[in-house]
Structures are given as structure tokens and as C-alpha cells.
Amino acid sequence: MSTGVTYPNMEDRNTVCCFLRLPQLFSTCVAFSLVADMGIWRGSIGNWSMSIWCFCFAVTLMIVTVEYFDFESRFPFFWYNLPITYACYAILLCLLTSIIYSITYVRFLPDGPLRDRAMAASVLSCVASVLYGIDVTFVWNYYGFEEITCYVHTLPGLLKVLETFVACVIFAFLSNTSLYLHQPALEWCVAVYSICFIWAALAMLLKLGDWENILPVPFPIFQLGLILLSVILYISALVLWPLYQFYEEFGGQPQWSSDISCIYDLMCAWIQQLAVAILTAINLLIYVADLMYWACQVSIGTEDQPRNF
């Protein structure tokens, strides 16, 4: 099937590789190496940051390999969808990592080689975020998405990116299992985050792969149903998570001062609980916006259907 898409020629591919992809690999790899070299001083935030930089490096390397050996046509979806979608996530991930790593760890380090190394890693993470942003701009201009719609440059695509990204940040905080284990209500909240993330990722995959036609119902109705369920589930999480984390009647801690570890650790358990609650509310708002969009789409589609009198 003809798509009207022309893949970059060798000259354009080499330009992108030399001026964007190789610097992306360099910045994420060096940031990872600088923090890894800190040994036991890198802390839990350092380990989390390293995992983000390692992920970005690995996916960028895969993209470089595919483009270098001209394997784009072997993918079951249009190749440009993958790099530009990944680059959108990488912008957010690298920027968020540099901010969190700086404000929760770097600024508390004493002056010396360790602090210099951590600051350099934060700067390189910011540089990587900028490079991924330029990558998105280049792909947009090259393929001419004014004529060919790229999913992540549409409103529903952007909302899906935000939904899954916020969920990933929530999962980062939930890596501290002591926040919810052995508490059924809080374990339900974790299940909600996981289920809604899987649904959003599934919808995105169907759209990226142009597989909407395999569904037994029209894609807008499918989306509307999933998002409506996600909104209901997130409402339950928004009620239960703060209730069982911050109210004494349910075993919670109403103030940060009640968690002694907060005196010494800016990312103590109470702060992590609060972060999850705030991110839950943010993601609920994103899902509500998504629900309104697809409700309008389904309504317009229904009005366009021929009526029998």
C-alpha cells in the first residue's frame, strides 16, 4: 500500500546520525558512566537516573542500527512513527531526570569531584533532551507531516504520550514497595495504574501500526470505552490513595513531620506518597480531556450516519 512517505536517503541519514543520533548516544552514555563511577555515593535517585539514561541509549542505538542497515521496510508499521514517538518520550524522560537528579541529590552533595561529576551528568541529560527535541523537529520537517499525519503530533496521540509518561513516573515512585504492600486498597491503586497504562499502550500500538481495522468495533468507540473505564478506575485511585496514605483513621500519616526519615531524605516515603497522589490527579485530568475528545468524535460520527425515516 502506498503511503506517500519517502524514507531519508543515505546523505540525510548520515546527517541525522552525525549531528543528532551520535550526540544522543554520547550524552546519555557519558551521563550514565559519570554516575555509575560514583559507586555507593550515587544513591537510589542515581540508580533511577542511570536506568533512564541506559534505556535512552539502548533504544537510540537500536534506531541507529536499523537506519544504518536500511531495515526500515522490515517493520509492520511506518518506520517514522517509532523514532518520533520514542523521541517525544526521550525529551520528557531526560528532562525530568535532570531536574529530579539535580534538586533531590546533586545540590546536597559537598563541593568536590563527586558533585562535579553529578552536575556534569545533569547537564548532559539536559543536552540529550534538547537533541531529542531537535530530532522530532527534523523528522516532522523531512516527512512533511502537514500532508501526512503523524500520530504523536495529533491531540489524541499527545494525550496518549502524556498518559503513559505520567504512569511511568508513578511506577518510578512505586518501585518503593513499602508504600503499598500488604494494604489491599493501595494494592488496588497500583493495579489501576498498571491496567490503565496497558490499555493506553495498546491503543497507541494499534494506531501506530495502523491496525484499527482488526477491532470488532469502530476505533473511536473502542477508545471511548477504554478511556471511560480508565477515568472510573483513576477516580477510585484518587480517592483511595490519599485516604489510606494521609488519614490517621486508615493508618496514614497526615503530615510529613510524622515521617522521621523526611528530616534527612528529601525523597522520603511521605514525599513519594504525596507525589503519587499529585500525579494521579494530573493523569486523571489528562484522561478526562481524552474522554471529552473521543466523546466528541463519536458524537460527530453518529450525527454523520444516515438516518432511516
Rank of each mutant, 00 (worst) to 15 (best):
C126R: 14
P113L: 09
D116R: 13
L109V: 01
G112W: 02
P113M: 10
L96M: 09
G112Q: 04
S102R: 10
L124I: 11
Y105A: 04
S98K: 10
L95T: 08
I99V: 15
T104H: 12
S122M: 10
L96P: 02
L109F: 01
S102E: 10
R117P: 00
F108G: 12
L95S: 14
S125Q: 09
M119R: 13
D116I: 05
T104N: 14
R115H: 06
C126D: 07
D116C: 11
S102M: 10
Y101T: 07
S125V: 08
S125R: 06
I103N: 02
I100C: 04
A120C: 13
I103A: 01
Y101M: 11
S98L: 09
D116S: 13
P110D: 02
Y105L: 11
D111Y: 05
M119S: 14
C126T: 14
I99L: 13
S102F: 12
L96Q: 12
M119Y: 09
V106H: 00
S98P: 10
S102T: 15
S122V: 12
I100P: 00
R107V: 13
F108S: 12
L95A: 15
L109G: 00
Y101I: 04
G112C: 05
L114R: 03
V123H: 09
I100V: 15
Y105S: 07
P110E: 03
T97V: 12
D111M: 06
P110V: 01
D111I: 03
S98A: 15
R117G: 06
L109H: 00
P113H: 10
I100Y: 01
S98G: 14
A118R: 01
S102Q: 14
R107H: 07
A120S: 15
D111T: 04
I99H: 07
V123E: 07
I99P: 00
A118W: 02
P110W: 01
R117F: 02
T97E: 10
Y101A: 05
M119W: 09
F108I: 02
F108M: 07
R107L: 07
L109Q: 01
F108R: 07
S102D: 09
T97L: 05
L109Y: 00
T97H: 05
R115V: 00
G112M: 04
L109C: 02
R117C: 11
S102P: 03
S125F: 05
